[in-house]
Each structure stands twice: as structure tokens, then as C-alpha cells.
């Protein structure tokens, strides 16, 4: 036991001594949370709009006023021909032009369509503002996220990504570094059991991950004001399972990689990128082609993020996420067994 504790202390020292890494490890969640919470939004806002009208009559004026008043649009100029408006879009001075027809027989919307998604939204919004249905038949309700904050969507995603990065990358590098420097030889020959080496390697990163998890949860409820809807206990339990899974992945990488360089590239490029892209972290899984959906079926963070979104944001009970929980536990068990089996007790 004493051996084990001193091993853990040694690992902790490695982590704590590397000031820059520490700074990044703790700075990253904070900066990411702030970015996603405040800076990154898909909102339609400040769309540079040109108004095209030959003669400004009363109704047109009203429509333009409504446009100007909405936070979606900023009127940059009023011109008299569609040609001029188009030229403004082409020279990147405007995003949208609204050509008002005479006698209010509708309007034409000229839009910079390079981003079809945004273009769609701009025109939909503009149509609504211009049409101004006097009696609204429709009421809209945005469930769970009434103020349309992207943070609601991204907090679980950041958790999924950072926990994976810290656990998988840091663990694998710390083991491979011992191999590369030759200290692993001594550790293996020492009386300490190989299993203990692994556990001792993993414990500090587990703690680190828990600290960062707490940090993210605290930040999300205080600074970003994303309410924690579900039960904190289950959130922690699920996160623990996920952390274990990430640690086993790190272990597996360390078995394959012989040099830190390879371990780093594998965790950063081969592991992290698909995770970010295919797990539904940033891009919804449903809009991917079927093959990619299959691939995403085997990507563990997908289930974690899915479950977290439900638990944290939607506040459903754990019975609604049992499927994700079972899958995560299964994957963890599988990875753990494989990586322990593959851990070399000889050179």
C-alpha cells in the first residue's frame, strides 16, 4: 500500500511540476466554456441588409422600420436598383438585400448563399419581419432552452471532449514516456505488481478529471447560468463511467504506441478528431449519412454526450438514459479488459 501511495504521489508531482500543462488543463475548460457560452452563437444577428426601393412609400417605410428595429438586421444602405444591391453583396459589404416591389406586391430577397444554412434562416426571418402577420396564429415555445443559448447544447459536449482529452491523452503519454525514457524497465522489475502500476498511473488523472468536471459544472451553473436540471448524483456516476472509459482508451493507446510522438498524434488526430466530429458534439448525428451514423454508433462520447444532454439540460430521470448507461458500461468493460490484457509485463 505504501508503494502504491508513493507511486501516486510521484505521478501527482509529474503533473503538478509541469506548470504550463497545468495552466492549459485548467485554462482550457474555462476558456472553452466562456467561448461557447458567450462568443459562439448561431443566432441571426447583425445581418447587413440593403433595402432596394424606387420610392419609399408608407408601407415600405414601415417594413424597413421593423427591420431596423429587430436585432436580426442592420440596415447598411438603401439603394434604388437591385443591381446596386447585388454589387454590394458581391463586394462583401452586405449579406442580404430586400427588393420591395411597387404597390407591395411582395418582395424579392437577394441573399449571399454561400452558407446555405444561414441564408435560409436570414430569409425566413426577413420574410416574417416584412410580412408582419398582424394577428399571430402561431405561438412558439422553445423547450428546455427558452433563451436559445448555445451553451445548453455545448456544455455536455465540452465535458465529453475535455474528459476524453485529459484522460486518454495524458495517461497514454505518461505511460509511453516511461517506456521511452527507460524507467518502465525498472518499474516492471520492481516488486510492485503490474496492475498496481496501471492503477497508480490512472488515479491522478482520475482525480484531475474529477476536478475539471466539478469546475465545468460549477462554471456552467454560475457563469453561464445553465441550470442543472437532473440529479447531480447520476450525472457524477455517469461521468465516472465515462472517465474510466477514457482512461482505458489511454491505456490501450499506450500499449500500441512506442514513442510519445506517436501517442500524441494518435490521441490528438486519430482519437480526438473523430470524437469531436462524429459524436454529435458539434454536428447532429441525424443529419449524417448512414455509414457515418454507424461509425458514430461505436464512438463512446456520443452516448455520454447524449445522456448528459438529457440528464443535465432536459432533466429527465435516469430511466430515460438507461440505454446509454448500459452501452457505456459495456464499452468500458470491453476496453478495460482488452487494454489490461495487452499491457505488456515484459519488454
Amino acid at each position: 500500500m505504501r508503494q502504491f501511495i508513493s507511486f501516486v504521489i510521484k505521478e501527482m508531482r509529474h503533473i503538478l511540476r509541469d506548470k504550463r500543462t497545468m495552466l492549459i488543463l485548467f485554462g482550457m475548460p474555462i476558456v472553452l466554456m466562456l467561448l461557447f457560452g458567450f462568443a459562439i452563437t448561431n443566432d441571426v444577428k447583425n445581418v447587413r441588409t440593403v433595402v432596394v426601393t424606387s420610392q419609399m412609400d408608407h408601407l415600405t417605410q414601415q417594413a424597413v422600420d421593423r427591420l431596423a428595429a429587430s436585432e436580426y438586421f442592420t440596415i447598411v444602405k438603401a439603394v434604388s436598383t437591385p443591381k446596386e444591391a447585388e454589387w454590394m453583396i458581391r463586394s462583401q459589404k452586405a449579406d442580404l438585400a430586400i427588393v420591395f416591389a411597387l404597390k407591395h406586391q411582395g418582395a424579392q430577397f437577394i441573399v449571399d448563399g454561400s452558407d446555405p444554412n444561414m441564408a435560409q434562416q436570414w430569409t425566413t426571418y426577413a420574410q416574417q419581419v416584412v410580412a408582419n402577420p398582424s394577428v399571430s396564429l402561431i405561438s412558439q415555445k422553445l423547450l428546455y432552452n427558452p433563451r436559445m443559448k448555445s451553451a445548453y447544447n455545448f456544455v455536455p459536449a465540452i465535458m465529453g471532449m475535455l474528459l476524453l482529452l485529459i484522460c486518454a491523452m495524458m495517461t497514454s503519454v505518461s505511460i509511453v514516456r516511461e517506456k521511452e525514457r527507460g524507467t518502465m524497465e525498472v518499474l516492471l522489475v520492481s516488486p510492485i505488481k503490474p496492475l498496481m502500476i496501471i492503477v497508480a498511473k490512472v488515479v491522478p488523472y482520475l482525480l484531475l478529471a474529477l476536478v475539471i468536471l466539478t469546475m465545468i459544472l460549477l462554471m456552467s451553473s454560475t457563469v453561464l447560468q445553465v441550470p442543472l436540471q437532473g440529479s447531480l448524483g447520476w450525472i457524477l456516476v455517469l461521468s465516472l463511467i465515462y472517465i474510466l472509459l477514457a482512461l482505458s482508451l489511454g491505456l490501450l493507446i499506450s500499449n500500441i504506441a512506442q514513442t510519445q510522438f506517436v501517442a500524441l498524434l494518435v490521441s490528438a488526430m486519430v482519437l480526438l478528431l473523430p470524437t469531436v466530429m462524429l459524436s454529435g458534439m458539434l454536428f447532429p448525428v441525424e443529419s449524417m449519412p448512414t455509414i457515418l451514423q454507424w461509425i458514430s454508433d461505436v464512438i463512446p462520447p456520443r452516448y455520454y454526450i447524449q445522456a448528459m444532454r438529457k440528464l443535465m439540460i432536459m432533466g429527465v430521470g435516469v430511466q430515460e438514459v438507461w440505454r446509454e448507461v448500459v452501452i457505456l458500461i459495456g464499452m468500458t468493460a470491453l476496453l478495460l479488459v482488452v487494454s489490461l490484457k495487452k499491457f505488456k509485463t515484459r519488454l
Binding site: N42, T124, S139, L143, P146, M148
Partner: peptide
């Protein structure tokens, strides 16, 4: 009367979805 309630955990999806739907209705 029409009520559109969208799951807005994914903000983009929620807002675009409800925008499209209200467009169809209106």
C-alpha cells in the same frame, strides 16, 4: 391556433425547425 414547441437543447436545430414549421403554417 397553432403552438410549436421545439426541443431547443441544440439551439440551431430547434430554432431552424420551428422557423420552417411556422413558415409552412403561415
Amino acid at each position: 391556433q397553432y403552438l410549436i414547441a421545439a426541443n431547443a437543447v441544440n439551439g440551431t436545430k430547434g430554432s431552424i425547425g420551428s422557423a420552417y414549421l411556422s413558415q409552412i403554417v403561415t
